[in-house]
């Protein structure tokens, strides 16, 4: 059951990200990129398995079905990185708006 739900969530996140990325509005495109990044994080979580119990407990009987803690550490790191890049890209978006007065991709890049 859970794998199916996760697969659906992942699929919809990726498709939402891709859909937004193809919009004409730069803000939406950036939101799309951010959602793609988050989808990659969710995907990374699923790579460690999600059905097990808490790792590293004294009770050794549950050793067989523990969830891999490493991916969660990885995702924490990836979230911190995406926090930094997201804030940078949003500030850059503000600068683009200041410089060009528009966030329409066609008008920004059409006149190259």
């Amino acid at each position: 059951m859970t794998p199916l739900i996760l697969a659906l969530i992942l699929g919809s996140l990726f498709s939402l990200g891709t859909f937004l990325l193809l919009r004409r509005d730069l803000l939406k495109a950036i939101l799309g990129v951010i959602i793609l990044g988050q989808a990659a994080n969710v995907y990374l979580i699923t790579m460690g398995g999600i059905s097990g119990t808490v790792p590293v407990l004294s009770d050794s009987s549950s050793l067989i079905s523990i969830t891999d803690p490493l991916v969660q550490a990885l995702v924490l790191t990836a979230i911190v990185i995406s926090l930094g890049t997201t804030s940078f890209v949003l500030v850059l978006l503000l600068r683009v708006y200041d410089e060009h007065g528009t966030l329409d991709i066609d008008r920004l890049w059409g006149q190259l």
Binding site: V33, L36, A40, L44, M47, L74, A78, T85
Partner: peptide, 14 residues
């Protein structure tokens, strides 16, 4: 590069 980063993460996870 953000898109590239997301894909790199996917491949590393895989």
């Amino acid at each position: 590069n953000l898109i590239g980063g997301a894909f790199m993460l996917i491949s590393i996870g895989g």
